[in-house]
């Protein structure tokens, strides 16, 4: 039966049907909010960081099946990783972990990578602010 399900790998369908880590984190250490310039979809990624390790991640996504599956996959991949390890993840590694994506849907995995980077950037800038606040207090 040729249908839209067969467009996607089993892994993609699994993450689409049972997305992991859906939702928001209260007081996250980093938030990524990105829009897909190609089709106009939106993803939000929240991370909680302890020491240098990502201890929790949650997402919200408005997008196609591939966008939802890559969002879910990326949260699963980063939990337990250090920030530096997480930064090594690219849209390709996410797509690979999902058993591949159709060519027309590769841009959706870029959304996940962008969201991850933006969440980590946000984490870094919060850290800096935190440090300068701490310094200011010391003085």
């Amino acid at each position: 039966m040729p249908d839209i399900q067969s467009l996607y790998s089993e892994k993609v369908m699994d993450h689409f049907r049972n997305p992991r880590n859906v939702g928001e984190i209260e007081n996250p250490d980093g938030t990524g909010h990105v829009g897909n310039p190609i089709c106009g979809d939106i993803m939000e990624l929240y991370i909680k960081v302890n020491g240098n390790t990502i201890t929790d991640a949650k997402f919200k996504t408005f997008g196609c099946g591939a966008a939802i599956a890559t969002s879910s996959m990326v949260t699963e991949m980063i939990i337990g990783k250090t920030i530096d390890e997480a930064l090594e993840i690219s849209n390709k590694t996410v797509a690979e972990a999902l058993g591949g994506l159709p060519a027309a849907k590769m841009h959706c995995s870029v959304l996940a990578e962008d969201a991850l980077r933006s969440a980590i950037d946000d984490y870094h800038s919060k850290q800096k602010k935190g440090k300068s606040k701490a310094k200011a207090k010391k003085k």
Binding site: D3, I4, F62, G63, G65
Partner: peptide, 13 residues
């Protein structure tokens, strides 16, 4: 608030 293709995919299931 919901994207069409993800609805189609769910309906297809």
């Amino acid at each position: 608030y919901v994207e069409g293709e993800s609805m189609l995919l769910n309906l297809d299931l």
